[in-house]
Amino acid sequence: MTSLSLRDVRKSFGPTEIIRGVTLDVAPGERHCIIGPNGAGKTTCFNLISGRFPITSGEILLNGHRIDQLPPHRINRMGLSRSFQITSIFHRLSVFENLRCALLWSMGYRYSFWSPLWRQKALNERADALLEDLNLTSRRDVLAGLLSYAEQRALEIGMTIAGGASVILLDEPTAGMSNTETDYAMALIRRVTEGKTLLMVEHDMKVVFDLADVITVLVYGQVIASGPPAAVRASRAVQEAYLGALEG
């Protein structure tokens, strides 16, 4: 069974069709990268999968269950979590509180207004362990809005994986980072997504070819190639549509 599968998914904004029949299968534990030129619809695809926008037609299945009619919080509870291209955190809460919020639902607290947070030992320990994983322990009580860009990106990834989702969607996690920061971020991503299914949009080709088991190339809302890195690299269509344009 596939972790995530898209069946002829289409999305129109007004008369313009942005996603024009995308079919995609992601196997459990696979590291799957989506590449494509700007405006190809990569982020829109993420928004459709995660429930941020409704799809126009087609089907999306998560572990065999339809999710394309569900709101984002329901999809998240079913085990799919995403990050954002533009950092999306709770900027007036501390780093620790951000991570603790991201853990709450998965640890069964729901909308509790009777459990005092300071007494939830397991919850607080896990938030602290996450801080350690993200190398943010020294920034524990700093407001998230005051972190450096790279630190905010790390926090963003941390919040995405905190709830223990089995399918992780990362939208350009290394955008705007220096080479060193990118290396660090990729090491972090490898570590924290160990054993999970990973679907990632990325522009940095080095990162993509290093990490991916499968690469899907999206151009103008359509999949023009999908397969192992070597096959995609060799594909004539891809070279013409995308890689050639980059090198030229």
């Binding site: 941020r52 984002p72 900027h91 007036r92 809460l93 919020c101 709450l104 005092p116 947070l117 709830g163």
Partner: peptide, 20 residues
């Protein structure tokens, strides 16, 4: 409590709250 904290979180960024 969790509700009180999530109230702060939705105040700061209601969209992110959905994705956790």
């Amino acid at each position: 409590t969790p509700l009180g904290r999530m109230a702060n979180a939705t105040r700061d960024n209601f969209e992110r709250a959905q994705f956790i």
